[in-house]
Design a protein around this nucleic acid. Structure first.
Lengths: 131, 131
DNA sequence: TATGAGCCTTCCAGCAACTGGAAGGTCAAG
DNA sequence: CTTGACCTTCCAGTTGCTGGAAGGCTCATA
């Protein structure tokens, strides 16, 4: 499939897809006409990249995450350790998003009319490190 | 408090804090010596920025989120709509992180030895849009 | 009072991760 | 066989920092 379709299916702009190829994240085939030719696997990877980038992982971190998929010997200790690190990061992100969500909801429902520093819910939010 | 302490308390490098001032996200006082002087409020905002940036919100989105806090008339329809939009985004991010987490765990526990395209768990992961 | 470490300041340059635009080749439809 | 929507490469610009130089401020210690 051409880059346009890959773009549509992955949710990434063509420009970005070419950029990801430049920096070695994906290696699509080329047709006789020089056009890039994407397989379903490539689209999976692109969608994966689209998501993990949007979740605040750097390109280098995404490269590591992709490597977890590509590594045939996933049982290795290295890979397990890396995965564990990433799982911890993901858990932290989920926690932070949940906090953020709670803050926003409370702001709308309970804090209307008050400015930030005076709002008790935001104090509560600050991870116990309020000072 | 000086920028160093604000940095320590917010988790943001001093460089980044000065940059956020450049682009108008925060406006600390200045002491007689020209040093920036951060209040507790500023640190709250900085910590908030540190988190939301790390969760994949753009600086402009963070500016909007901060505005939600600063807007004295939070009951307005505009603000409620913006908040709702952001809540939806946050929910999506949480869902995506949860998926990502599940994928990683499954990869370690169930898929060892197989390559990506053949792994049924990754098919299942692709949001029903596998093709 | 001076000297030095460790802050702080501004300014400018560079990097990461795109993003847009120009200039031109390919392809399917009419 | 042309028109329009694709595709290609290349180069320049933007965003969001990040590092370093050059110099000023502060405070402890000699």
């Amino acid at each position: 499939m051409n880059i346009g379709e890959a773009s549509e299916r992955s949710g990434l702009p063509s420009k970005t897809i070419r950029y990801y190829e430049d920096i070695g994240l994906i290696r699509p085939d080329r047709g006789g006409n020089g056009y890039r030719d994407y397989a379903a696997t490539d689209v999976h990877k692109l969608r994966f990249l689209q998501r993990s980038r949007g979740l605040g992982f750097s390109v280098e971190e995404c490269r590591q995450l992709l490597a977890l998929y590509e590594d045939r010997s996933r049982a290795s200790a290295d890979v397990k350790e890396l995965t564990q690190t990433k799982l911890t990061e993901i858990d932290r992100k989920i926690r932070e998003l949940t906090d953020l969500r709670r803050t926003l909801e409370h702001l709308v429902h309970a804090c209307h009319g008050n400015e930030w520093p005076d709002c008790p819910i935001l104090d509560e939010l600050s991870d116990g490190r309020v000072d």
